[in-house]
Design a protein around this nucleic acid. Structure first.
Lengths: 265, 265
DNA sequence: CGAGATAGTCCGGTATACTGGACATAAGTA
DNA sequence: TACTTATGTCCAGTATACCGGACTATCTCG
Protein backbone atom coordinates (compact mmCIF):
# COMPACT_ATOMS: atom_id res chain seq x y z
CA UNK A 1 0.00 0.00 0.00
CA UNK A 2 2.99 2.29 0.21
CA UNK A 3 3.27 4.55 -2.74
CA UNK A 4 6.06 3.01 -4.67
CA UNK A 5 7.69 6.13 -5.93
CA UNK A 6 8.75 7.46 -2.55
CA UNK A 7 11.25 5.10 -1.06
CA UNK A 8 11.10 6.07 2.56
CA UNK A 9 14.35 4.69 3.80
CA UNK A 10 16.46 5.62 0.79
CA UNK A 11 16.31 9.27 0.01
CA UNK A 12 19.13 8.11 -2.21
CA UNK A 13 19.58 9.71 -5.54
CA UNK A 14 19.56 7.14 -8.25
CA UNK A 15 18.67 7.09 -11.89
CA UNK A 16 14.91 7.31 -11.88
CA UNK A 17 11.96 7.23 -14.20
CA UNK A 18 10.69 10.57 -15.37
CA UNK A 19 7.18 9.65 -14.27
CA UNK A 20 8.25 8.94 -10.74
CA UNK A 21 10.07 12.22 -10.60
CA UNK A 22 6.90 13.96 -11.68
CA UNK A 23 4.79 12.21 -9.08
CA UNK A 24 7.27 13.07 -6.37
CA UNK A 25 7.30 16.64 -7.53
CA UNK A 26 3.53 17.02 -7.45
CA UNK A 27 3.20 15.23 -4.16
CA UNK A 28 5.87 17.40 -2.60
CA UNK A 29 4.29 20.54 -3.94
CA UNK A 30 1.03 19.52 -2.29
CA UNK A 31 2.49 18.96 1.15
CA UNK A 32 4.62 22.06 0.78
CA UNK A 33 1.44 23.94 0.01
CA UNK A 34 3.01 27.10 -1.38
CA UNK A 35 4.88 28.14 -4.50
CA UNK A 36 8.53 27.21 -4.32
CA UNK A 37 11.71 28.19 -6.10
CA UNK A 38 13.15 25.63 -8.42
CA UNK A 39 16.41 25.47 -6.53
CA UNK A 40 14.67 24.60 -3.29
CA UNK A 41 12.66 22.04 -5.17
CA UNK A 42 15.81 20.31 -6.33
CA UNK A 43 17.13 20.20 -2.79
CA UNK A 44 13.87 19.04 -1.26
CA UNK A 45 13.36 16.28 -3.78
CA UNK A 46 16.99 15.35 -3.77
CA UNK A 47 16.72 15.01 -7.52
CA UNK A 48 19.23 15.71 -10.26
CA UNK A 49 19.25 19.35 -11.19
CA UNK A 50 19.27 19.08 -14.94
CA UNK A 51 16.48 16.55 -14.99
CA UNK A 52 14.40 18.70 -12.72
CA UNK A 53 14.76 21.67 -15.03
CA UNK A 54 13.74 19.50 -17.93
CA UNK A 55 10.71 18.12 -16.14
CA UNK A 56 9.59 21.48 -14.88
CA UNK A 57 9.75 22.85 -18.38
CA UNK A 58 7.68 20.00 -19.74
CA UNK A 59 5.10 20.30 -16.99
CA UNK A 60 4.92 24.05 -17.32
CA UNK A 61 4.33 23.80 -21.06
CA UNK A 62 1.51 21.40 -20.32
CA UNK A 63 0.10 23.83 -17.72
CA UNK A 64 0.36 21.29 -14.93
CA UNK A 65 2.67 23.81 -13.34
CA UNK A 66 2.73 27.57 -13.43
CA UNK A 67 5.39 30.12 -12.67
CA UNK A 68 4.30 32.82 -10.26
CA UNK A 69 5.24 36.43 -10.74
CA UNK A 70 8.24 36.07 -8.47
CA UNK A 71 9.60 33.08 -10.33
CA UNK A 72 8.31 30.37 -8.05
CA UNK A 73 6.56 27.21 -9.11
CA UNK A 74 3.14 25.92 -8.25
CA UNK A 75 0.25 23.91 -9.62
CA UNK A 76 -1.16 25.12 -12.91
CA UNK A 77 -4.47 25.56 -14.60
CA UNK A 78 -4.60 22.08 -16.12
CA UNK A 79 -4.67 20.56 -12.66
CA UNK A 80 -7.55 22.81 -11.75
CA UNK A 81 -9.46 21.51 -14.74
CA UNK A 82 -8.64 17.90 -13.98
CA UNK A 83 -9.74 18.41 -10.40
CA UNK A 84 -13.01 19.84 -11.63
CA UNK A 85 -13.48 16.84 -13.89
CA UNK A 86 -12.93 14.56 -10.92
CA UNK A 87 -15.59 16.35 -8.98
CA UNK A 88 -18.08 16.30 -11.82
CA UNK A 89 -17.82 12.53 -12.27
CA UNK A 90 -17.52 11.64 -8.64
CA UNK A 91 -20.98 11.65 -7.17
CA UNK A 92 -19.98 10.80 -3.66
CA UNK A 93 -17.48 13.60 -3.25
CA UNK A 94 -19.78 16.10 -4.88
CA UNK A 95 -22.66 15.19 -2.64
CA UNK A 96 -20.36 15.10 0.36
CA UNK A 97 -19.26 18.64 -0.33
CA UNK A 98 -22.81 19.85 -0.66
CA UNK A 99 -23.75 18.11 2.55
CA UNK A 100 -20.85 19.70 4.42
CA UNK A 101 -21.84 23.13 3.21
CA UNK A 102 -25.42 22.47 4.23
CA UNK A 103 -24.48 21.14 7.66
CA UNK A 104 -22.18 24.06 8.40
CA UNK A 105 -24.91 26.47 7.44
CA UNK A 106 -27.65 24.67 9.33
CA UNK A 107 -25.74 24.03 12.55
CA UNK A 108 -23.15 26.78 12.54
CA UNK A 109 -20.49 24.18 13.32
CA UNK A 110 -17.26 23.55 11.45
CA UNK A 111 -17.95 20.57 9.20
CA UNK A 112 -15.75 18.27 7.18
CA UNK A 113 -16.00 15.51 4.61
CA UNK A 114 -13.12 13.07 4.91
CA UNK A 115 -11.69 10.07 3.15
CA UNK A 116 -8.77 7.70 3.37
CA UNK A 117 -5.92 8.82 1.16
CA UNK A 118 -2.32 7.68 1.33
CA UNK A 119 -3.33 5.73 4.41
CA UNK A 120 -4.05 8.97 6.19
CA UNK A 121 -7.16 10.79 7.30
CA UNK A 122 -7.64 13.42 4.61
CA UNK A 123 -9.92 16.44 4.52
CA UNK A 124 -11.75 16.34 1.21
CA UNK A 125 -13.93 19.33 1.96
CA UNK A 126 -14.60 21.55 4.89
CA UNK A 127 -16.55 24.61 5.84
CA UNK A 128 -15.86 26.73 8.88
CA UNK A 129 -18.65 27.23 11.38
CA UNK A 130 -20.39 30.43 12.38
CA UNK A 131 -18.02 31.35 15.19
CA UNK A 132 -14.48 31.65 13.96
CA UNK A 133 -13.06 28.96 16.13
CA UNK A 134 -9.55 27.65 16.22
CA UNK A 135 -7.69 26.79 13.09
CA UNK A 136 -9.78 24.71 10.74
CA UNK A 137 -7.73 22.45 8.52
CA UNK A 138 -7.55 23.18 4.82
CA UNK A 139 -8.82 20.89 2.12
CA UNK A 140 -6.20 18.26 1.42
CA UNK A 141 -4.80 18.29 4.93
CA UNK A 142 -3.61 14.88 6.03
CA UNK A 143 -3.49 13.65 9.59
CA UNK A 144 -2.58 10.27 11.12
CA UNK A 145 -5.65 8.10 11.51
CA UNK A 146 -5.48 7.63 15.29
CA UNK A 147 -5.71 11.36 15.88
CA UNK A 148 -9.29 11.60 14.71
CA UNK A 149 -12.74 10.18 15.23
CA UNK A 150 -13.13 9.73 11.49
CA UNK A 151 -9.95 7.70 11.41
CA UNK A 152 -11.55 5.15 13.71
CA UNK A 153 -14.52 4.79 11.41
CA UNK A 154 -12.46 4.62 8.24
CA UNK A 155 -10.58 1.59 9.55
CA UNK A 156 -13.62 -0.11 10.99
CA UNK A 157 -13.96 -2.66 8.19
CA UNK A 158 -10.55 -4.14 8.98
CA UNK A 159 -9.66 -6.93 11.33
CA UNK A 160 -7.67 -6.18 14.46
CA UNK A 161 -4.55 -7.57 12.86
CA UNK A 162 -4.97 -5.48 9.76
CA UNK A 163 -5.47 -2.36 11.83
CA UNK A 164 -2.29 -3.00 13.76
CA UNK A 165 -0.33 -3.32 10.55
CA UNK A 166 -1.89 -0.21 9.01
CA UNK A 167 -1.00 2.11 11.83
CA UNK A 168 2.68 2.83 11.87
CA UNK A 169 4.29 3.59 15.19
CA UNK A 170 4.71 7.27 14.50
CA UNK A 171 1.02 7.81 14.00
CA UNK A 172 0.24 6.96 17.58
CA UNK A 173 2.19 9.92 18.96
CA UNK A 174 -0.20 12.81 19.48
CA UNK A 175 0.73 16.46 18.95
CA UNK A 176 0.59 17.03 22.71
CA UNK A 177 3.34 14.48 23.25
CA UNK A 178 1.14 11.73 24.61
CA UNK A 179 1.02 8.33 23.01
CA UNK A 180 -2.11 6.41 22.07
CA UNK A 181 -2.09 2.80 23.14
CA UNK A 182 -2.38 0.56 20.11
CA UNK A 183 -4.72 -1.96 21.69
CA UNK A 184 -6.90 0.78 23.05
CA UNK A 185 -7.07 2.17 19.54
CA UNK A 186 -8.02 -1.18 18.05
CA UNK A 187 -10.80 -1.37 20.63
CA UNK A 188 -11.99 2.12 19.77
CA UNK A 189 -12.20 1.21 16.10
CA UNK A 190 -14.26 -1.81 16.99
CA UNK A 191 -16.55 0.28 19.14
CA UNK A 192 -16.93 2.91 16.43
CA UNK A 193 -18.13 0.26 14.03
CA UNK A 194 -20.62 -1.12 16.51
CA UNK A 195 -22.01 2.29 17.37
CA UNK A 196 -22.11 3.71 13.86
CA UNK A 197 -20.46 6.94 14.96
CA UNK A 198 -17.46 8.11 16.94
CA UNK A 199 -16.56 10.92 19.29
CA UNK A 200 -13.07 11.83 20.41
CA UNK A 201 -11.88 14.59 22.71
CA UNK A 202 -8.74 16.65 22.84
CA UNK A 203 -6.71 14.56 20.43
CA UNK A 204 -5.49 16.95 17.73
CA UNK A 205 -5.77 19.82 20.17
CA UNK A 206 -7.02 20.21 23.70
CA UNK A 207 -9.93 22.48 22.91
CA UNK A 208 -12.04 20.38 20.58
CA UNK A 209 -14.24 17.37 20.33
CA UNK A 210 -14.29 15.54 17.05
CA UNK A 211 -17.60 14.01 16.11
CA UNK A 212 -17.85 11.70 13.12
CA UNK A 213 -20.36 9.54 11.25
CA UNK A 214 -19.61 7.10 8.43
CA UNK A 215 -20.68 7.05 4.82
CA UNK A 216 -21.02 3.41 3.82
CA UNK A 217 -20.60 1.69 0.48
CA UNK A 218 -22.60 -1.28 -0.77
CA UNK A 219 -20.74 -3.64 1.54
CA UNK A 220 -21.31 -1.41 4.55
CA UNK A 221 -17.68 -0.39 4.57
CA UNK A 222 -16.94 3.21 5.54
CA UNK A 223 -15.67 4.93 2.42
CA UNK A 224 -15.90 8.41 3.87
CA UNK A 225 -16.98 10.28 6.95
CA UNK A 226 -18.76 13.44 7.84
CA UNK A 227 -17.60 15.22 10.94
CA UNK A 228 -18.04 18.21 13.17
CA UNK A 229 -15.20 19.90 15.02
CA UNK A 230 -16.73 21.46 18.11
CA UNK A 231 -15.49 23.29 21.23
CA UNK A 232 -14.88 21.19 24.36
CA UNK A 233 -17.36 23.21 26.35
CA UNK A 234 -20.27 22.13 24.18
CA UNK A 235 -23.14 20.75 26.27
CA UNK A 236 -23.84 17.04 26.28
CA UNK A 237 -27.33 17.68 24.97
CA UNK A 238 -26.00 19.65 22.02
CA UNK A 239 -23.41 16.99 21.26
CA UNK A 240 -26.03 14.28 21.05
CA UNK A 241 -28.17 16.49 18.90
CA UNK A 242 -25.29 17.10 16.51
CA UNK A 243 -24.43 13.43 16.51
CA UNK A 244 -27.93 12.51 15.37
CA UNK A 245 -27.83 15.07 12.60
CA UNK A 246 -24.47 13.78 11.44
CA UNK A 247 -25.45 10.13 11.53
CA UNK A 248 -28.55 10.94 9.53
CA UNK A 249 -26.53 12.84 6.91
CA UNK A 250 -24.04 10.01 6.69
CA UNK A 251 -26.86 7.57 6.16
CA UNK A 252 -28.30 9.71 3.40
CA UNK A 253 -25.00 9.63 1.52
CA UNK A 254 -24.46 5.93 2.07
CA UNK A 255 -24.94 3.38 -0.67
CA UNK A 256 -26.30 0.83 1.77
CA UNK A 257 -28.43 0.84 4.86
CA UNK A 258 -26.20 0.56 7.92
CA UNK A 259 -27.06 -3.13 8.24
CA UNK A 260 -25.52 -2.89 11.69
CA UNK A 261 -27.76 -3.16 14.69
CA UNK A 262 -27.10 0.44 15.61
CA UNK A 263 -28.33 0.74 19.18
CA UNK A 264 -27.97 -2.65 20.71
CA UNK A 265 -25.60 -2.44 23.60
CA UNK B 1 2.92 27.70 -28.36
CA UNK B 2 1.78 24.27 -29.45
CA UNK B 3 2.00 21.78 -26.67
CA UNK B 4 5.03 19.82 -27.64
CA UNK B 5 3.83 16.43 -26.59
CA UNK B 6 0.97 16.21 -29.03
CA UNK B 7 2.39 16.15 -32.52
CA UNK B 8 -0.63 17.04 -34.57
CA UNK B 9 0.42 15.76 -37.94
CA UNK B 10 2.07 12.58 -36.74
CA UNK B 11 -0.21 10.42 -34.67
CA UNK B 12 2.72 8.12 -35.28
CA UNK B 13 3.63 5.65 -32.65
CA UNK B 14 7.25 5.97 -31.71
CA UNK B 15 9.27 5.32 -28.65
CA UNK B 16 8.28 8.09 -26.29
CA UNK B 17 9.06 9.49 -22.90
CA UNK B 18 6.93 8.26 -20.07
CA UNK B 19 6.18 11.81 -19.05
CA UNK B 20 4.81 12.70 -22.42
CA UNK B 21 2.65 9.64 -22.41
CA UNK B 22 1.24 10.71 -19.07
CA UNK B 23 0.52 14.21 -20.27
CA UNK B 24 -1.21 12.90 -23.35
CA UNK B 25 -3.22 10.55 -21.23
CA UNK B 26 -4.42 13.24 -18.85
CA UNK B 27 -5.13 15.68 -21.62
CA UNK B 28 -7.11 13.10 -23.53
CA UNK B 29 -9.06 12.13 -20.45
CA UNK B 30 -10.04 15.76 -20.01
CA UNK B 31 -11.34 16.23 -23.53
CA UNK B 32 -12.99 12.85 -23.40
CA UNK B 33 -14.71 13.98 -20.24
CA UNK B 34 -15.91 10.60 -19.01
CA UNK B 35 -14.37 7.44 -17.60
CA UNK B 36 -12.92 5.21 -20.27
CA UNK B 37 -11.82 1.64 -20.60
CA UNK B 38 -8.15 1.03 -20.81
CA UNK B 39 -8.42 -0.63 -24.19
CA UNK B 40 -10.12 2.35 -25.72
CA UNK B 41 -7.51 4.52 -24.13
CA UNK B 42 -4.76 2.61 -25.87
CA UNK B 43 -6.51 3.01 -29.20
CA UNK B 44 -7.31 6.68 -28.72
CA UNK B 45 -3.81 7.58 -27.68
CA UNK B 46 -2.27 5.30 -30.23
CA UNK B 47 0.20 4.28 -27.58
CA UNK B 48 1.90 0.97 -26.92
CA UNK B 49 -0.28 -1.33 -24.91
CA UNK B 50 2.19 -2.62 -22.40
CA UNK B 51 3.49 0.83 -21.62
CA UNK B 52 0.00 2.12 -21.14
CA UNK B 53 -0.78 -0.60 -18.62
CA UNK B 54 2.40 0.23 -16.79
CA UNK B 55 1.67 3.93 -16.71
CA UNK B 56 -1.92 3.48 -15.66
CA UNK B 57 -0.78 1.32 -12.79
CA UNK B 58 1.72 3.89 -11.65
CA UNK B 59 -0.77 6.73 -11.88
CA UNK B 60 -3.47 4.75 -10.14
CA UNK B 61 -1.15 3.94 -7.27
CA UNK B 62 -0.42 7.64 -6.97
CA UNK B 63 -4.17 8.41 -7.03
CA UNK B 64 -3.87 10.58 -10.10
CA UNK B 65 -6.22 8.11 -11.67
CA UNK B 66 -9.02 6.03 -10.23
CA UNK B 67 -10.81 2.95 -11.44
CA UNK B 68 -14.57 3.25 -11.46
CA UNK B 69 -16.83 0.45 -10.33
CA UNK B 70 -17.24 -0.80 -13.89
CA UNK B 71 -13.51 -0.94 -14.53
CA UNK B 72 -13.13 2.32 -16.36
CA UNK B 73 -10.47 4.93 -15.73
CA UNK B 74 -10.81 8.53 -14.74
CA UNK B 75 -9.12 11.27 -12.78
CA UNK B 76 -8.36 10.50 -9.16
CA UNK B 77 -8.44 12.13 -5.80
CA UNK B 78 -4.91 13.51 -5.96
CA UNK B 79 -5.87 15.66 -8.91
CA UNK B 80 -8.80 17.00 -6.96
CA UNK B 81 -6.43 18.02 -4.19
CA UNK B 82 -3.97 19.58 -6.58
CA UNK B 83 -6.76 21.49 -8.23
CA UNK B 84 -7.88 22.76 -4.86
CA UNK B 85 -4.34 23.87 -4.11
CA UNK B 86 -4.27 25.76 -7.37
CA UNK B 87 -7.43 27.55 -6.46
CA UNK B 88 -6.24 28.43 -3.00
CA UNK B 89 -3.05 30.06 -4.24
CA UNK B 90 -4.50 31.65 -7.31
CA UNK B 91 -6.20 34.86 -6.25
CA UNK B 92 -7.46 35.84 -9.64
CA UNK B 93 -9.24 32.61 -10.40
CA UNK B 94 -10.69 32.42 -6.91
CA UNK B 95 -12.05 35.94 -7.11
CA UNK B 96 -13.26 35.34 -10.63
CA UNK B 97 -15.27 32.37 -9.47
CA UNK B 98 -16.80 34.31 -6.64
CA UNK B 99 -17.68 37.13 -8.98
CA UNK B 100 -19.34 34.77 -11.45
CA UNK B 101 -21.44 33.26 -8.69
CA UNK B 102 -22.37 36.71 -7.50
CA UNK B 103 -23.26 37.95 -10.98
CA UNK B 104 -25.39 34.94 -11.79
CA UNK B 105 -27.26 35.38 -8.56
CA UNK B 106 -27.71 39.12 -8.90
CA UNK B 107 -28.74 39.18 -12.57
CA UNK B 108 -30.18 35.73 -13.08
CA UNK B 109 -28.09 35.39 -16.22
CA UNK B 110 -25.70 32.57 -17.09
CA UNK B 111 -22.23 33.87 -16.23
CA UNK B 112 -18.73 32.66 -16.99
CA UNK B 113 -15.14 33.37 -16.08
CA UNK B 114 -12.78 32.59 -18.94
CA UNK B 115 -9.10 32.45 -19.71
CA UNK B 116 -6.75 31.56 -22.51
CA UNK B 117 -5.59 27.97 -22.27
CA UNK B 118 -3.98 25.92 -25.00
CA UNK B 119 -4.61 28.86 -27.28
CA UNK B 120 -8.32 28.34 -26.87
CA UNK B 121 -11.10 30.15 -25.09
CA UNK B 122 -11.58 28.14 -21.92
CA UNK B 123 -14.36 28.22 -19.34
CA UNK B 124 -12.69 28.45 -15.94
CA UNK B 125 -15.94 28.78 -14.05
CA UNK B 126 -19.56 29.20 -14.86
CA UNK B 127 -22.93 29.39 -13.21
CA UNK B 128 -26.21 28.87 -14.93
CA UNK B 129 -28.79 31.63 -14.82
CA UNK B 130 -32.24 31.61 -13.26
CA UNK B 131 -34.09 30.33 -16.31
CA UNK B 132 -32.69 27.04 -17.48
CA UNK B 133 -31.67 28.19 -20.91
CA UNK B 134 -29.87 26.22 -23.60
CA UNK B 135 -26.87 24.15 -22.81
CA UNK B 136 -24.38 25.99 -20.68
CA UNK B 137 -20.83 24.83 -21.22
CA UNK B 138 -19.10 22.96 -18.45
CA UNK B 139 -16.02 24.12 -16.64
CA UNK B 140 -12.98 23.29 -18.73
CA UNK B 141 -14.79 23.50 -22.02
CA UNK B 142 -12.60 24.80 -24.80
CA UNK B 143 -13.81 26.68 -27.84
CA UNK B 144 -11.96 28.35 -30.72
CA UNK B 145 -11.27 32.00 -29.96
CA UNK B 146 -13.20 33.50 -32.91
CA UNK B 147 -16.43 31.92 -31.77
CA UNK B 148 -16.73 34.08 -28.70
CA UNK B 149 -16.80 37.64 -27.51
CA UNK B 150 -14.26 36.78 -24.82
CA UNK B 151 -11.92 35.44 -27.47
CA UNK B 152 -11.77 38.87 -29.06
CA UNK B 153 -10.80 40.45 -25.78
CA UNK B 154 -8.26 37.81 -24.87
CA UNK B 155 -6.31 38.48 -28.06
CA UNK B 156 -6.62 42.24 -27.89
CA UNK B 157 -3.08 42.82 -26.67
CA UNK B 158 -1.62 41.32 -29.84
CA UNK B 159 -0.71 42.99 -33.10
CA UNK B 160 -2.74 42.23 -36.20
CA UNK B 161 0.03 40.00 -37.49
CA UNK B 162 0.24 38.08 -34.26
CA UNK B 163 -3.51 37.55 -34.24
CA UNK B 164 -3.43 36.19 -37.77
CA UNK B 165 -0.78 33.67 -36.82
CA UNK B 166 -2.58 32.62 -33.63
CA UNK B 167 -5.84 31.76 -35.28
CA UNK B 168 -5.55 28.58 -37.27
CA UNK B 169 -7.78 28.18 -40.29
CA UNK B 170 -10.04 25.65 -38.65
CA UNK B 171 -10.98 27.98 -35.86
CA UNK B 172 -12.73 30.36 -38.22
CA UNK B 173 -15.35 27.82 -39.25
CA UNK B 174 -18.42 28.28 -37.08
CA UNK B 175 -20.63 25.42 -35.90
CA UNK B 176 -23.39 26.61 -38.23
CA UNK B 177 -21.13 26.10 -41.25
CA UNK B 178 -20.41 29.75 -41.90
CA UNK B 179 -16.88 31.05 -41.98
CA UNK B 180 -15.58 34.11 -40.15
CA UNK B 181 -13.50 36.42 -42.31
CA UNK B 182 -10.02 36.70 -40.83
CA UNK B 183 -9.62 40.42 -41.46
CA UNK B 184 -13.04 41.10 -40.05
CA UNK B 185 -12.02 39.19 -36.97
CA UNK B 186 -8.79 41.18 -36.62
CA UNK B 187 -10.87 44.32 -36.84
CA UNK B 188 -13.27 43.06 -34.18
CA UNK B 189 -10.41 42.34 -31.83
CA UNK B 190 -9.12 45.85 -32.34
CA UNK B 191 -12.57 47.28 -31.68
CA UNK B 192 -13.00 45.15 -28.56
CA UNK B 193 -9.82 46.60 -27.15
CA UNK B 194 -10.86 50.15 -27.87
CA UNK B 195 -14.29 49.70 -26.37
CA UNK B 196 -13.25 47.71 -23.32
CA UNK B 197 -15.98 45.15 -23.88
CA UNK B 198 -17.37 42.97 -26.64
CA UNK B 199 -20.73 41.67 -27.79
CA UNK B 200 -21.28 38.94 -30.34
CA UNK B 201 -24.49 37.42 -31.64
CA UNK B 202 -25.39 33.96 -32.86
CA UNK B 203 -21.85 32.65 -33.16
CA UNK B 204 -21.72 29.45 -31.12
CA UNK B 205 -25.43 29.04 -31.59
CA UNK B 206 -28.20 31.08 -33.15
CA UNK B 207 -30.11 31.78 -29.98
CA UNK B 208 -27.61 33.66 -27.86
CA UNK B 209 -25.70 36.85 -27.49
CA UNK B 210 -22.34 36.63 -25.83
CA UNK B 211 -21.38 39.64 -23.75
CA UNK B 212 -17.86 39.95 -22.37
CA UNK B 213 -15.68 42.33 -20.36
CA UNK B 214 -11.94 42.02 -19.77
CA UNK B 215 -9.95 41.52 -16.59
CA UNK B 216 -6.68 43.35 -17.07
CA UNK B 217 -3.24 42.71 -15.61
CA UNK B 218 -0.70 45.37 -14.64
CA UNK B 219 0.13 46.06 -18.27
CA UNK B 220 -3.53 46.40 -19.21
CA UNK B 221 -3.46 43.11 -21.02
CA UNK B 222 -6.59 40.99 -20.81
CA UNK B 223 -5.70 37.95 -18.72
CA UNK B 224 -9.27 36.80 -18.30
CA UNK B 225 -12.82 37.77 -19.09
CA UNK B 226 -16.18 37.77 -17.46
CA UNK B 227 -19.15 37.09 -19.67
CA UNK B 228 -22.89 36.64 -19.86
CA UNK B 229 -24.61 34.27 -22.23
CA UNK B 230 -28.05 35.74 -22.90
CA UNK B 231 -31.01 34.95 -25.14
CA UNK B 232 -31.19 36.77 -28.49
CA UNK B 233 -34.51 38.33 -27.64
CA UNK B 234 -33.06 40.32 -24.75
CA UNK B 235 -33.96 43.99 -25.00
CA UNK B 236 -31.31 46.52 -25.98
CA UNK B 237 -31.82 48.36 -22.72
CA UNK B 238 -31.21 45.22 -20.71
CA UNK B 239 -28.13 44.38 -22.74
CA UNK B 240 -26.56 47.74 -22.04
CA UNK B 241 -27.44 47.40 -18.40
CA UNK B 242 -25.77 43.99 -18.21
CA UNK B 243 -22.79 45.30 -20.13
CA UNK B 244 -22.21 48.03 -17.58
CA UNK B 245 -22.44 45.58 -14.73
CA UNK B 246 -19.97 43.26 -16.42
CA UNK B 247 -17.48 45.99 -17.27
CA UNK B 248 -17.61 47.19 -13.70
CA UNK B 249 -16.99 43.68 -12.36
CA UNK B 250 -14.13 43.20 -14.77
CA UNK B 251 -12.60 46.43 -13.62
CA UNK B 252 -12.89 45.38 -10.00
CA UNK B 253 -10.92 42.21 -10.69
CA UNK B 254 -8.33 44.00 -12.81
CA UNK B 255 -4.85 44.70 -11.54
CA UNK B 256 -4.72 47.99 -13.41
CA UNK B 257 -7.10 50.76 -14.30
CA UNK B 258 -8.27 50.32 -17.90
CA UNK B 259 -5.85 53.04 -19.02
CA UNK B 260 -7.73 53.02 -22.31
CA UNK B 261 -9.85 56.01 -23.18
CA UNK B 262 -12.98 53.94 -22.88
CA UNK B 263 -15.68 56.01 -24.57
CA UNK B 264 -13.93 58.06 -27.18
CA UNK B 265 -15.31 57.16 -30.58
C1' DC C 1 36.28 43.91 -6.90
C1' DG C 2 36.07 38.98 -5.51
C1' DA C 3 33.39 35.27 -3.34
C1' DG C 4 29.30 32.73 -2.98
C1' DA C 5 24.41 31.74 -4.23
C1' DT C 6 21.11 30.96 -7.65
C1' DA C 7 19.03 30.39 -12.31
C1' DG C 8 19.50 28.31 -16.46
C1' DT C 9 21.69 25.85 -20.71
C1' DC C 10 24.28 22.26 -22.97
C1' DC C 11 26.41 17.85 -24.02
C1' DG C 12 28.08 13.00 -24.27
C1' DG C 13 27.99 8.31 -22.19
C1' DT C 14 25.36 4.76 -20.35
C1' DA C 15 21.91 2.67 -17.27
C1' DT C 16 17.47 1.48 -18.12
C1' DA C 17 12.71 2.57 -19.35
C1' DC C 18 9.99 1.46 -23.05
C1' DT C 19 8.27 -1.46 -26.35
C1' DG C 20 6.75 -5.55 -29.25
C1' DG C 21 5.28 -9.73 -29.04
C1' DA C 22 4.20 -14.00 -26.77
C1' DC C 23 1.18 -15.92 -23.48
C1' DA C 24 -2.86 -16.66 -20.22
C1' DT C 25 -7.81 -15.80 -19.15
C1' DA C 26 -12.38 -14.67 -19.50
C1' DA C 27 -16.61 -13.09 -21.85
C1' DG C 28 -19.36 -12.70 -25.70
C1' DT C 29 -21.35 -14.69 -29.98
C1' DA C 30 -22.32 -17.29 -33.96
C1' DT D 1 -17.20 -25.80 -30.27
C1' DA D 2 -14.45 -22.28 -32.31
C1' DC D 3 -13.70 -17.64 -33.16
C1' DT D 4 -13.35 -12.86 -31.61
C1' DT D 5 -12.43 -9.28 -28.52
C1' DA D 6 -11.05 -7.64 -24.18
C1' DT D 7 -8.03 -7.42 -19.97
C1' DG D 8 -3.79 -8.26 -18.00
C1' DT D 9 1.19 -10.17 -17.16
C1' DC D 10 5.90 -11.03 -18.47
C1' DC D 11 10.28 -10.84 -20.73
C1' DA D 12 14.50 -9.43 -23.25
C1' DG D 13 16.80 -6.16 -26.53
C1' DT D 14 17.84 -1.61 -27.63
C1' DA D 15 16.74 3.25 -28.49
C1' DT D 16 17.08 6.92 -25.64
C1' DA D 17 15.93 9.53 -21.52
C1' DC D 18 18.43 10.76 -17.71
C1' DC D 19 22.25 12.36 -15.29
C1' DG D 20 26.79 14.53 -13.99
C1' DG D 21 29.37 18.01 -14.64
C1' DA D 22 31.09 21.94 -17.08
C1' DC D 23 29.81 26.45 -18.38
C1' DT D 24 27.28 31.40 -18.42
C1' DA D 25 24.96 34.90 -16.44
C1' DT D 26 22.92 37.49 -12.62
C1' DC D 27 22.63 39.10 -8.11
C1' DT D 28 24.04 40.07 -3.43
C1' DC D 29 26.93 40.93 0.13
C1' DG D 30 31.27 42.25 2.20
Amino acid sequence: MQTEHTPKSTPAISRGRGIDRVLDLLSFLHTHGRPIRIGDLVKSLNAPRSSTYEIVKTLTDAALLETTSDGKLFFGKALYFYGTDYLREHDLVRKGRDEVDRLALATGETSQFCMLHDNKYTVVHMRAGARPFGISSDIGTQVPLPWTASGRLLLSHLSAAEIRSQVSGNDLALPNGKEIDLEEFVGAVEEARRQGFCITSGLVDAYTHCLAAPVLDEESKAIATLCFVIPVDTSQKRILELRDILVESGRALSLSAPARQANLA
